[in-house]
């Protein structure tokens, strides 16, 4: 039954993807892309990947949609030309894909317990985590500790995107000085006059933020962690900005605070890593952070997850405001 549901969902996924490519109105395409992400997230749940599903839903359907819409508000929303040389492209693309399909026939089947993936490094994590790290969510243990260096890199990828967007948008005719930006922000009063949305917003936003904090600190026990929490909290503030207007959102959490989150989170992660070296072990070795190595691991994971959450939240909001506070140039 689950298999059949999976097949159904995957087929829907393909149809949605085709619709994204075919839609001529870009806002429609963005919405379809959001639906695509939600469907993908449901699929991940079926494939036992709860953490990934949560992230894909928050990022793909939430943040990504908002960013696309924020950018589209500054430009033409219609696609004016069709594809260029569609047949040639199709031939190239189809031949690449036939290669992939060719490869599949020697691949282990879905869920095959004999597959190499399920028999080498993966089970080791499942077996040893209770002993070394002792937190229930093995995904968080791998993310935070065994492969914590990747996650450090991930935080810096987000950070790079943040400074990249800020750098790009600090130039050009749309860039303004602080006073001008404030004026633009004040003009964007959002949907404050829509009573219904206003009331719903007041009800929903606190819960979104609360849920974000829960996801942040519950990541060791259930699905969640810094990244998901950062994205959720950012989504809460974005919702606030959409309903109450840019200016009020910036008053609630000003740019300086966002910069602090962005820089501070990345540094917090790095400092926890360096503490490992200073206390006589290796970079990002949490066991030496406390007398009891297992507690040290837990402490380390909590700290770096906080760093991840801070940077992600700061960067996403900073990027959102950078798009939202910009004037459309004709």
């Amino acid at each position: 039954m689950t298999t059949l549901f999976g097949v159904f969902l995957l087929t829907l996924l393909v149809i949605t993807a085709l619709a994204v490519v075919r839609a001529r109105h870009l806002v429609v395409a963005v919405m379809l892309l959001g639906i695509f992400s939600l469907l993908l997230a449901v699929n991940f749940v079926l494939l036992d990947a709860a953490d990934v599903a949560l992230t894909e839903a928050a990022v793909g359907a939430g943040i990504s949609t908002v960013l696309f819409l924020g950018a589209l508000a500054l430009m033409s929303e219609r696609e004016h030309y069709g594809s260029s040389r569609p047949w040639l492209s199709l031939v190239v693309v189809v031949s690449a894909v036939l290669v992939v399909v060719y490869a599949t026939f020697d691949q282990p089947r879905l869920g095959d317990p004999e597959a190499p993936v399920l028999n080498h490094v993966g089970p080791w994590y499942l077996e040893k985590t209770p002993e070394y790290v002792d937190i229930p969510n093995v995904v968080t243990a791998v993310l935070g500790s065994y492969r914590g260096y990747d996650t450090l890199g991930e935080v810096f990828v987000v950070f790079t995107a943040g400074i990249g967007v800020l750098f790009l948008l600090s130039a050009g005719p749309g860039a303004q000085n602080n006073g001008r930006r404030r004026a633009v922000a004040e003009k964007k009063i959002g949907l404050r006059d829509e009573r219904l949305l206003h009331v719903i917003g007041q009800l929903v936003i606190p819960f979104v933020l609360l849920f974000g904090l829960y996801v942040q600190f519950h990541g060791e026990y259930g699905p969640g962690g810094g990244f998901q929490a950062g994205a959720l909290i950012a989504a809460g503030f974005i919702l606030y900005a959409l309903i109450e207007g840019e200016q009020r959102a910036l008053e609630a959490l000003p740019q300086g605070g966002l910069n602090f989150l962005m820089v501070g989170g990345a540094l917090l992660y790095g400092v926890v890593g360096l503490a490992g070296i200073l206390l006589g072990s290796n970079f990002l070795a949490y066991s030496v952070l406390a007398q009891d190595p297992v507690f040290g691991q837990k402490l380390g994971i909590i700290l770096i997850e906080a760093g991840v959450g801070m940077t992600v939240c700061g960067v996403l909001l900073r990027i959102f405001h950078a798009f939202a506070c910009r004037e459309r140039i004709r």
Binding site: H120, V121, W124, Y125, K128, S145, Y146, R147, G148, Y149, G276, S281, N282, F283, L284, A285, Y286, S287
Partner: peptide
Amino acid sequence: VGAWAAPYG
């Protein structure tokens, strides 16, 4: 990194 032996770390 993290004092985890390869291939786990």
